[in-house]
Amino acid sequence: MGSDGESHAAHYKKIYVILLGLLAVSLIGPYFGEKFDMMWLTLITAFGIAFVKAWLVLKHFMHVDVERPFIHYALITGVGFMVLFFAGVSPDVMKHEGTNWENVGAKAEIARALAEAEAGGGHGAHGEAAAHGDDADAHDDAAEHKAPAH
């Protein structure tokens, strides 16, 4: 695997530094993304970089690129089945109404939670559903900036 031992360790350390850099970017990006309400910036930095980091770990640490091809097919098939599962299930779980049916339970839950967030909301203090019962007593102290409901 590559030339002599020494450059190996250096190679891995180099990759490690890149990964830390990407981590920093994926932390700073969403911070600014929220501040200036640029949703796409949060998405790209948080999730896009996650994929890049994943590929770096796969390639350089797990040496998947030099692995036998059927291992690639097995890994990709596994991920493919999860995408298939997402595609088959999301119309029923992600959506709350469809042809001839309506998920009134979920809609009520969403409306209640959003209304509660609004009521407790306003700038600064942030209400939230502590105990799930109806009497949500907002007692959150850590004032954080208001989250954009994306």
Binding site: F85, V89, N103, G105, A106
Partner: peptide
């Protein structure tokens, strides 16, 4: 649990997948 925003249909999909 439908009262807490969950859904029995999710289990059906997980089970039959």
């Amino acid at each position: 649990d439908p009262d807490k925003g969950g859904g029995p249909v999710l289990w059906q999909h997980l089970f039959w997948f």
